[in-house]
Simulated scan of single mutants.
Amino acid sequence: MAHYRLGTMLFPPASCPRLVVKIGSALLVDPAGAVRRDWLAGIAADVADRARAGQQVAIVSSGAIALGARRLGLPRGGRASLEDAQAAAATGQIALSQTWAEVLGANGLTAAQMLVTLDDLEDRRRYLNAAATLGRLLQLGAVPVINENDSVATAEIRFGDNDRLAARVAQAAGAEGVMLLSDIDGLYDRNPAQAGAMHIPEVSRIDARIAGMADDGSASGMGSGGMVSKIEAARIATSAGVALAIASGRIERPLSATARHTIFLPEKRARARKAWLAGRLTVKGIVQVDAGAAEALMSGRSLLAAGATGISGAFARGDVVAIEGPSGPIARGLAEYDAAEMQRLLGRRSDEHEALLGYVPRAALIHRNHMALL
């Protein structure tokens, strides 16, 4: 049986039937704005090898803006303004999807294009629809090629980088592994351009020390994310029970080669709804709690009004809100009340709620069944 090694972990098809591979703009497009066709053909051959071994692969592909900028003659790789980026994406996406269809087709594989926006994966119903489409395409033997729909995304409602998109796609697809192919071979304890920088082969827990190693620059100038976005992607993936590797794509056949990289080990796989909550990038409001409530939440309790000290934001019942304690973020969950009602209940005992609301109250501000700890 073929095994696929990500860092120190093995992914045989039997235990890792699905893998998401993210390819950055700097790997797919050369400095002149042309597709690196030979390198991409090697990726397609790798995917075909994995498909024959029984593994299903989805691809999150950057490159539309870079390709479109060349065709339209736009400055700064099409990133001089939001309008330029949208125009470049609309033009480049056609070329990008055609290229993927050709290189995958040459290996007997069918490409399927999926363009998504942030709202498609943040709204629960749309998320489930996207997950169903991904699942069916993979079952049919197609290779989904996914990108953010940059032609309509705005600065306020977008992923902003395909690292985090890849992590969310892996969650939606039920994948066990994500590989971020980039122009760097993993995480270093400082900017790798600095003398003495040490490569980190494995991360078992993303804490402040690990986050502090990140650099938010994009070395190529084409992409939109640096190491900061990759660590954020790793946080989303690992909290959903998905392993994530950062590996260099500056080699031929990177999916079959053995090279140095960093793997972020997954946490215990969460229930689907809670994993979706933990991986969200946006919330409608924030609920502040005291130290006692924070401790109760960490032990698996629901959030009661007596431990809530403040709220911010305009949200309705059922919206996703963040919960923050004295030391920072604790959890995300679905609000059982709208903001105005929750404001009236802050700090009040449960036996006071009916008189304050005028109806029989719910059991908690945010129930533990609809909450995901961070």
Rank of each mutant, 00 (worst) to 15 (best):
H3Q: 14
H3F: 13
Y4P: 03
R5G: 01
G7K: 02
T8E: 14
P12S: 14
P17Q: 11
S25F: 04
S25C: 07
L28V: 15
A32G: 07
A32Q: 13
R36G: 04
L40A: 10
I43G: 06
A45G: 11
G54T: 10
L72G: 05
D84I: 03
I94L: 04
I94P: 00
L96V: 00
T99I: 00
E102G: 04
V103H: 10
N107C: 13
G108W: 07
Q113S: 10
R125S: 14
R126Y: 04
Y127A: 12
Y127S: 11
L128D: 14
A131I: 04
L134E: 05
G135D: 12
A142Y: 02
A142S: 12
V143M: 09
N147W: 00
N147Y: 00
N147T: 00
E148Y: 01
D150E: 08
S151F: 01
A153P: 00
F159I: 07
R164M: 13
A167L: 10
A170D: 08
A170M: 08
Q171C: 12
A173R: 04
M179I: 15
D185S: 12
G186Y: 07
Y188K: 01
D189L: 04
A195C: 01
G196W: 01
G196C: 00
A197C: 04
M198G: 03
I200L: 11
P201S: 14
E202M: 15
I206W: 12
G212P: 15
M213V: 09
S218R: 06
S218A: 15
G225W: 05
M227H: 10
M227C: 09
V228D: 02
V228F: 02
V228I: 10
V228S: 09
K230Q: 07
A237F: 12
T238R: 13
R253D: 09
L255H: 08
S256W: 05
A259K: 07
H261L: 14
I263V: 15
F264R: 07
P266S: 10
R273F: 15
K274A: 15
A275V: 11
A275W: 06
G279S: 10
G279H: 06
V283G: 05
K284N: 11
I286P: 02
V287W: 05
G292C: 07
A294V: 09
E295M: 10
E295F: 06
S299T: 08
S299W: 01
G300E: 09
S302G: 12
A305N: 07
G307C: 04
A308G: 00
A308S: 03
T309W: 01
G310C: 02
S312I: 10
S312A: 15
G313R: 13
R317G: 07
V320M: 05
V320T: 14
I323M: 14
P326R: 11
S327G: 02
S327I: 02
G328D: 13
P329C: 00
I330A: 02
A331L: 03
A335L: 06
Y337D: 08
A339F: 08
E341S: 14
M342E: 12
R348K: 15
H353L: 09
L356P: 11
Y359R: 14
V360E: 07
A363K: 12
I366V: 15
R368I: 05
R368D: 06
H370G: 14
M371K: 03
M371R: 03
L373F: 08
